[in-house]
C-alpha cells in the first residue's frame, strides 16, 4: 500500500463529509448569490451611460463577477483551521510525524471538500448567475485555454499561501480572527470583486507586485479576453514564479517548524 491509497481514502471521505452538511450548502449558496447580485448591480449602475470603462464593457464585468463567484468556491481552504486545531489540541507533534505527511493529508482533505463544494455550490451559483445576470462565456477559445492554465496555477498559489499562513498557528495564540482577516484581505487585494485596473495608478503598482492578483484577477482577465497569447505569456510566467516562491517558502517554513516543534515540544 502506498500513500496514494491514503490520499484517495481521505479525498473520498471529505467529499462524503462535505455533502452531509446540507444546511451549510443552502446558506452558502444564498450568501454567495447575494454578494454576486450586489456586485452585478454595482457594475450595471457604474456602466449606465458608458459603453466601456478601462477597456472592458458591462458584459465583460458581469461575466467577471459570475466567474469570480464560482472561483471563490474552488479557493475554499480548511488547512488553516486544521493546523490550528491540531496545535490547540496538542497533537501536532504526533500529527506531523505520521507516516503520511500532514500537509498532504490536509491538501487532499481540501481537494475533497472543494470537489463536493463545486457540485453543490459552484454549479448552482453558475446556473443562477447565467440565468439572472448573463451567460458568462469566455471571449474566445484561446482565452478559455489560457484561463484554465492560469486557474490551475491560481489554485496552487492560493493553497500554498493558505498553508504558509496556517503555520502562524505556531506563533500566535489567537489564530481564528487572523484567518478571517486574511480571507477578506485576499479577496479585496486579488481583484476578485473590483479588478485592480479600476484602482489608482499607485495602488495598481503595489498590488501588481503582490501575489494576490495572480489568484483571481489574472485568470479572470484572461477569461474576458484582455490578453492575447503573446501578452499573456509574461503574466503567466510571473504567476509561475509566484507559485514557485510560495510553495518553496512553504516547504522551507514547514521544515523549520517541524524541527522547532521537535525541540521545544508540541
Amino acid at each position: 500500500m502506498s500513500n496514494k491509497s491514503a490520499y484517495s481514502f481521505i479525498y473520498k471521505m471529505r467529499i462524503q463529509k462535505a455533502l452531509a452538511y446540507r444546511f451549510d450548502v443552502f446558506a452558502n449558496i444564498i450568501f454567495q448569490c447575494i454578494a454576486m447580485f450586489a456586485t452585478a448591480f454595482f457594475w450595471k449602475a457604474i456602466y449606465s451611460g458608458y459603453d466601456s470603462v478601462q477597456g472592458a464593457g458591462v458584459y465583460d464585468m458581469l461575466t467577471y463577477t459570475v466567474i469570480s463567484a464560482v472561483m471563490s468556491i474552488l479557493f475554499v481552504t480548511t488547512v488553516e483551521f486544521k493546523l490550528m486545531e491540531s496545535v490547540k489540541k496538542g497533537t501536532v507533534a504526533m500529527d506531523m510525524l505520521k507516516p503520511v505527511p500532514l500537509f498532504s493529508i490536509y491538501f487532499f482533505e481540501d481537494l475533497g471538500n472543494i470537489t463536493s463544494l463545486f457540485f453543490i455550490n459552484g454549479l448552482p451559483i453558475l446556473l443562477i448567475g447565467s440565468l439572472f445576470i448573463g451567460m458568462p462565456l469566455p471571449a474566445d477559445g484561446v482565452s478559455a485555454a489560457l484561463f484554465f492554465v492560469s486557474l490551475l496555477m491560481s489554485f496552487f498559489i492560493n493553497w500554498f499561501f493558505a498553508a504558509l499562513f496556517s503555520l502562524l498557528s505556531f506563533v500566535t495564540i489567537n489564530m481564528s480572527p487572523l484567518i478571517q482577516v486574511k480571507k477578506h484581505i485576499l479577496r479585496l487585494l486579488s481583484g476578485s470583486i473590483i479588478p485592480v485596473w479600476f484602482f489608482p495608478e499607485w495602488a495598481q503598482g503595489i498590488l501588481g507586485a503582490l501575489p494576490f492578483v495572480y489568484i483571481y484577477q489574472l485568470p479572470l482577465d484572461l477569461y474576458i479576453g484582455r490578453y492575447t497569447l503573446q501578452t499573456a505569456m509574461p503574466k503567466l510566467t510571473i504567476q509561475l514564479v509566484w507559485l514557485v516562491i510560495l510553495s518553496g517558502s512553504f516547504y522551507a517554513a514547514e521544515k523549520s517548524m517541524t524541527k522547532k516543534v521537535m525541540v521545544q515540544g508540541g
Binding site: 500500500m1 502506498s2 491509497s5 491514503a6 481514502f9 481521505i10 471521505m13 507516516p99 493529508i105
Partner: peptide
C-alpha cells in the same frame, strides 16, 4: 469507525 479506517490507510495496515 471512519477514524480507524483513516488509520488503516495512513499506517498502511493490511
Amino acid at each position: 469507525g471512519e477514524s480507524f479506517e483513516m488509520m488503516r490507510h495512513i499506517y498502511k495496515i493490511p
